[in-house]
């Protein structure tokens, strides 16, 4: 008997050793393919950064003849760029606040209750990002025209808040579903009002999910160009400023610098959001 047992455990370790080696070592071909796809996804970002230091003004010559940092100073002195940047930041801030309010309230209602029409409401919340942006854009524009409203700061916010709600909602509802219902019951049993339960039990649990959703909403709003084209009128947000440079290139060096700048501004919220959820399941579910 003892010998059989040891034999079994030897076999066991051999199997598990095999198992480990099979798990850690992905096939060589697969690893190369993965690396290739990652390079495809990320090399364009490196090029954007490289070109911001390019001395060549008139063309996208590669490799750049020499490098300089002078365009950064020049870009920040551009009044039109600064105005566009300020408009984008102000729009994103208010759109995020609106999305946080609408998304959180809706998620509180939807997380634990089943009612008639519940699926319709989730569809309604997802619809603005499920339909192509151009549909949302032209729909909002044509109703603004029908109502005789002029384009303004608020018409841009209107469009952005519409498609940002879902980001907050998805993050919040995923967290609420994971929060144990017995916590809420305990709070109520101990005599807390609904408001106290929200303030002291639900909100602390929900906070990081709201920050994560809010950050994504901010990044999306800051960067949005398709819906904005239809609701901005003559105003220029920073992505629209960049788009105008793309179709009629005048100041390539300044455009290159602004591109890097936009990348950095959107990268920060993404990193914060990822850090706040860490369990990456939430993020992969949100969609854009």
């Amino acid at each position: 008997m003892p010998s059989r047992k040891s034999e079994h455990s030897v076999l066991g370790t051999r199997y598990s050793a095999l198992g480990v080696s099979m798990k850690t070592r992905l096939p060589l071909g697969l690893r190369f393919a993965t690396l290739g796809v990652l390079l495809f996804l990320h090399v364009p970002f490196l090029l954007i950064v490289l070109y911001a230091f390019n001395t060549e003004e008139a063309a996208f010559t590669f490799p750049p003849p020499a490098l300089t940092t002078k365009w950064f100073a020049e870009a920040f002195q551009r009044e039109d760029m600064r105005e566009a940047l300020s408009l984008s930041l102000r729009v994103a801030a208010i759109a995020t606040v609106l999305a946080l309010i609408l998304g959180t309230l809706a998620s509180l209602a939807m997380a634990r209750s089943k009612f008639f029409g519940r699926d319709v409401i989730s569809l309604l919340i997802i619809l603005p990002i499920a339909l192509p942006g151009i549909v949302t854009g032209i729909a909002l524009r044509s109703s603004l025209k029908l109502l005789g409203l002029d384009f303004s700061y608020w018409t841009i916010v209107l469009g952005h808040a519409t498609f940002c709600v879902v980001l907050v909602f998805n993050n919040a509802i995923a967290r609420l579903r994971r929060t144990s219902g017995s916590l809420l019951e305990a709070s109520m049993d101990l005599g807390a009002t609904s408001f106290q339960t929200f303030r002291y039990v639900i909100l602390p649990n929900l906070a990081t999910a709201l920050v994560a959703g809010g950050m994504l909403a901010f990044a999306l709003s800051f960067d949005e160009v398709i819906v904005t084209t239809f609701t901005a009128g003559q105003q220029q947000t920073i992505p629209i400023w960049l788009l105008s440079q793309l179709t009629r290139p005048r100041d390539r060096p300044v455009t290159n610098v602004v591109a890097v700048f936009i990348l950095l501004i959107t990268l920060l919220p993404i990193l914060i959001s990822t850090y706040m959820t860490r369990n990456l399941d939430d993020l992969s579910r949100t969609g854009k």
């Binding site: 960049l242 990268l267 993404i270 992969s284």
Partner: peptide
């Protein structure tokens, strides 16, 4: 995951611009 999420959430217009370069 992060290397996939970063391009997903980063600026659409800047990424199109990169291909112009």
């Amino acid at each position: 995951y992060l290397l996939v999420l970063m391009p997903l959430w980063s600026s659409y217009i800047v990424r199109v611009y990169a291909w112009k370069l």
